[in-house]
């Protein structure tokens, strides 16, 4: 795969949506291509930031209210 083919698949690669053969090809390219590797790391990092930023828990009062309504 060349850089363009890899970048087109980068989202799917990070999202684990590629088939094993494509994963292998993308991984192989990333191992040898620092600019694409950088793009990959950036994408993965933003995903982690987003996940970390959205880690709120539901208030206990909400749980209680829902349980009460279902009785």
């Amino acid at each position: 795969m060349n850089c363009r083919e890899v970048l087109v698949r980068l989202d799917q690669f990070v999202d684990r949506e590629l088939n094993p053969e494509e994963v292998r090809e993308v991984q192989q390219h990333l191992d040898d291509c620092p600019p694409c590797q950088h793009m990959y790391r950036y994408e993965a990092r933003v995903r982690r930031l987003v996940r970390h930023a959205c880690s709120e828990l539901a208030p206990a009062s909400l749980r209680a209210r829902i349980l009460h309504k279902q009785d």
Partner: peptide, 22 residues
Amino acid sequence: PGGSLGESAENTALNSILDVDV
């Protein structure tokens, strides 16, 4: 990918991002 990525600048910039910004 062949263009200038500003790699370190981009990654460093992310360091200053807060959860509230995200």
